[in-house]
Amino acid sequence: MRWTKATGPLSQDPAASFRIGSMTKLFTSTVVLQLVAEGRFTLDTPIREVLPETVPAHWKPITIGQLLSHTSGLGLPCEPLADGLGLTPERVVHAWTGCPTAPQSPVTAQQYNGANYFFLGLAIEKVTGRTYAEEVQRRIARPLGLRHTYVPQAGDASMPTPSLAAPTPKEPWAWAEDGMISNAPDMERFMRALLGGRLLPPAQQRQLFVKPELSKTAAEQPYNQGGLMFHILSDGTEIRGKTGSTAPYSNGVFGTRDGTRIATWSFLPTPEAAKAGIIDRVTKILEAAL
């Protein structure tokens, strides 16, 4: 099937690298759940116990589990986060914790917020004594043989060869929230291992399939407690995964519950491609592949 006015130039190499955007969160949540399994903290641990000088004492406790499942109650930042200002994880987090008002409480619905995963990235570094990039390599990329998957350093705008043809953004770094680079074969291998139970013990594996207990119905909650998105295909098949967009890429990876069928994609929408049209095409990819 040939699409028109939906995608920009594509590499002819199926192993071309791309910026995976918010699919990075899958790696962050996996490391966090591994640390839960090791007893470093629990899903019920308030993030302030791990990062005491980061979260205001007067806030109602926000837990590790709430950050994972986008039920932290965090809203909009109260500081601008413009490109080119030498952003650090601490500065990003301060854009939320420096607000005069506390986060929403009680939380009645999921509210997707990338800031949650900056908190989690800092928590990973605090309890391990290693950088987030080192932990992703040590715990996931090297054991699975993901040779094209890594966390770039801040300020590194380079892309490996081959890669999807795309202009380089001014500020490509977004760390544990959406900063990683990978390719389709690596993402398929990672997702197969994650859904297949190779990366997490049984207790933590269950978090990939359980939704938070909120007043909203389960159908209104797109994320489970492990941070994965949930979708039901037209034939009733349940799939889990994550989309990810970082200018100009539009990406995603989804798989069946047991990880036997995986679909991953990345393309470069043109300015003429309306968001609704992109969603329609992505839905068709999932229906055809899974």
Score class of each variant (00 low, 15 high):
P56G: 05
A37W: 02
D44F: 07
L85Y: 11
P61L: 11
L81I: 10
D44G: 12
P14L: 12
V50Y: 00
R48L: 05
P14R: 08
T42L: 11
S29W: 00
R19Q: 15
V93A: 11
Q111N: 14
A15T: 15
L10H: 15
T97M: 06
Q104P: 05
T101A: 07
D83T: 12
F27M: 07
V36T: 10
V50M: 03
L43K: 08
S17E: 02
T30S: 04
S17P: 13
T24M: 04
Q104L: 10
I47S: 05
P52I: 08
A102C: 10
P14G: 04
A37H: 03
L33I: 04
T24H: 02
V55H: 00
G65E: 02
G75P: 04
L68F: 02
P89D: 08
S29M: 03
V36C: 06
K25I: 06
D83C: 12
A82H: 10
T42F: 02
P106E: 09
A37Q: 11
C99K: 04
S17A: 13
V92Y: 01
T63H: 05
P106Q: 05
P89L: 02
A95L: 14
G86P: 04
E49S: 15
Y112M: 13
P14Y: 09
L76V: 09
K60L: 13
T30M: 01
T30V: 07
V92H: 00
H94Q: 14
E79D: 15
A15H: 14
F41E: 03
L26V: 12
V93N: 03
D13I: 09
F27P: 00
V31T: 02
S72Y: 01
L35G: 00
V36N: 05
C99F: 01
I20A: 01
G21N: 03
L74V: 10
Q111R: 09
T108G: 10
D83P: 15
L81N: 13
R19Y: 10
L10T: 10
P56M: 06
E79L: 12
T63N: 04
Y112W: 14
P77T: 13
I20M: 13
A95T: 15
Q34Y: 00
A109F: 05
A95M: 10
A16T: 14
R91W: 12
T88P: 03
L26C: 06
T45C: 09
F18K: 03
P56W: 02
S69D: 11
M23T: 04
P61G: 09
C99M: 07
F18G: 02
Q104M: 05
E79A: 14
